[in-house]
Design a protein around this nucleic acid. Structure first.
Length: 556
DNA sequence: CGGGTTCGCGCC
DNA sequence: AAAGGGCGCGAACCCG
């Protein structure tokens, strides 16, 4: 069912479609769009087709719909798959390509965010003036179905269709999470901040008491006046005492045997909390007991979500006590244990690594197999292999891994080689990595062989990691889509369990207490379903650690 | 004064 | 000699 809201007001138009996108009837004007959509959802539960969730789904909040086909997200996936990276992805751009018209550039993200709030800002859909938006939605959708059907390899086609469905479900979910919000207790947050920093300063922008004291103590211990927030001044203050630092990074300070180093590390920890998640952050982002961040589905090229404003994906551990379930409710927190090495085991079909990943603690099993039981070595070696690390004492570890797990190591090394040579790699479900940038070619073809080689190696590390990170994102998206479907089946109305947080390999559901066990079962089943959907028959397991808690702080 | 860059750190 | 992937954000700093 194609859906296009009116430019202003609460109406819109619907048009029923066949699976391949052919219209099954004329457009239906609906002056009361939300009611009409709710009725159609109850009667037919169609797959809704729209330009973007933000243009079509957000205005329908708090309505919940089961399935959609998001044209913008799908266009991005298809363009990547067709190696047309960088082409504009808006509905208007896709329509223009279809009709042989000049293709409008995408709005920059910042402008797009503003376009949301202003009646006069340019329309993010980028349709040429006078274009019928519903006709464009119908035509672009039919074209996307045609392009999906044109993928020749049957298994690859099925996986790409799965990716389109999962990505679109992600679009639904991001809108719903923003609508529901993450439960956030401002009073608990304030208490935590007061313990760490001292009471909230009366004048906005003033430094909290404990932070100011720490700053004074730090300056006293170096016998100089300086701003601890200024790298230049800090380096000079230490240098004047004969301590020569190459940076002010905390790991470097940790090696310095001077009281000022410890004070500075502590100062940096606290000032960061104050600046990034302090009272100003609370004023800006927490309202009515909810933190409402804006998630950007597919905001990372690997398919991970990004966020805009509020640092939704960087909630510091020390403040997680402020995430508290409502009275009579609970939080179900689930995260995938050791997701990325398991993804590598499944992708590469390495028999030895798969055996380690068949259950329990992967690193411990690896250590028992190949590292004389030294779990730390096993973990460092495998992480280094997935990131392309070459420094430190990792050489012998990589050599062991190469000897014992040749298929797994061969897999990441092949991905790295492809990247170094300027090629493109894909996730398990078919998300493509970006091609090298234009200046990459300048560098690799430069006279200065060293700069070119360095740049090629950097791209090799990127593609090496991409196949794993992006396939992990495939799995997580499939889990989300399956979990969302299961939660909707558990109950409806105001007391429905709902997803409130998603961070790469971790999900959180806010649920009435009596449904907490059912939610735990649902998330476990969704993870198992995702494993089969994404990786097919594999011995590799993707265990979740799940917890039913009152506060996020108790989840780990 | 505003915009862009660098540094460094929060998260995975 | 160089030396691990992906992000968002804020403060300092630099420049026109």
């Amino acid at each position: 069912m194609a859906l296009v809201p009116d430019q202003h007001g609460s109406g819109g138009r619907l048009q029923p479609l066949a699976e391949d996108g052919t219209p099954l009837g004329p457009p239906r004007p609906e002056p009361r769009l939300a009611q009409a959509v709710a009725r159609v959802e109850a009667e037919q539960a169609p797959r809704w087709v729209w330009a973007t969730a933000e243009s079509a789904y957000q205005p329908l909040m708090p309505l919940r719909l089961a399935r959609c086909h998001d044209l913008r997200l799908t266009e991005t996936l298809l363009l990547g798959h067709e190696d047309h990276w960088g082409a504009p992805r808006s509905l208007g751009a896709a329509w223009a390509r279809l009709r042989g018209l000049p293709v409008p550039a995408d709005l920059p993200e910042a402008a797009a965010a503003e376009a949301q709030d202003s009646l006069f800002a340019p329309d993010r859909l980028q349709l040429p003036p006078g274009t019928d938006a519903l006709a464009a939605v119908v035509a672009v959708h039919a074209e996307q179905q045609r392009r999906l059907a044109a993928v020749t390899d049957q298994a690859a086609r099925a996986r790409l269709r799965l990716l389109v469905a999962a990505e679109s479900a992600g679009g639904l979910l991001a809108t719903e999470i923003a609508d529901d919000g993450l439960p956030w207790r401002a009073d608990v947050h304030d208490r935590l901040l007061t313990e760490l920093l001292g009471p909230r300063p009366r004048t906005p922008g003033a430094q909290p008491k404990l932070l100011a004291e720490l700053s004074a103590e730090l300056q006293h211990s170096l016998g100089a006046r300086f701003n601890p927030d200024s790298h230049t001044q800090v380096l000079r203050a230490f240098g004047d005492r004969g301590i020569h630092l190459s940076s002010t990074r905390s790991w470097e300070l940790a090696q310095v045997d001077h009281p000022a180093a410890r004070l500075l590390v502590r100062y940096k920890e606290l000032s960061r909390i104050h600046a990034a998640h302090g009272w100003a952050w609370q004023d800006a982002w927490v309202h009515g007991g909810r933190f409402r961040p804006e998630y950007v589905v597919g905001g990372v090229v690997s398919g991970r979500w990004a966020s805009r404003g509020g640092g939704a994906l960087q909630i510091p551990r020390i403040l997680r006590g402020a995430v508290v379930a409502d009275p009579g409710w609970a939080l179900v927190v689930a995260d995938a244990a050791q997701l990325e090495p398991r993804v590598l085991a499944a992708l590469s079909e390495d028999a030895g690594l798969a055996r380690s990943a068949a259950e329990g603690d992967l690193y411990a099993a690896l250590a028992a197999q190949a590292f004389q039981g030294d779990r730390e070595k096993a973990k460092l070696g495998l992480l280094g292999a997935m990131y392309g690390q070459t420094s430190g004492d990792i050489g012998p570890l990589l050599a062991t891994l190469r000897r014992r797990y040749p298929a797994a190591m061969g897999y990441v090394e092949a991905a790295a080689r492809t990247g170094e040579e300027g090629g493109v790699v894909r996730s398990r479900l078919g998300r493509a990595c970006p091609p090298p940038s234009a200046d990459w070619f300048d560098l690799t073809e430069t006279q200065e062989a060293e700069a070119g080689a360095r740049s090629a190696r950097a791209r090799g590390r990127f593609t090496r990691n991409f196949v794993i990170q992006a396939s992990g994102a495939d799995w997580a998206l499939a889990l989300l889509a399956g979990l969302r479907r299961r939660l909707a089946a558990l109950s409806s109305g105001a007391d429905r369990p709902h997803l409130v947080f998603f961070q790469h390999d971790e999900v959180m559901v806010h649920t009435p207490l009596d449904l907490a066990d059912a939610v735990t079962t649902a998330v476990t089943e969704a993870a198992e379903e995702a494993r089969t959907l994404v990786f097919g028959p594999t011995p590799v397991r993707f265990p979740l650690s799940t917890a039913v808690v009152e506060t996020y702080a108790d989840a780990k």
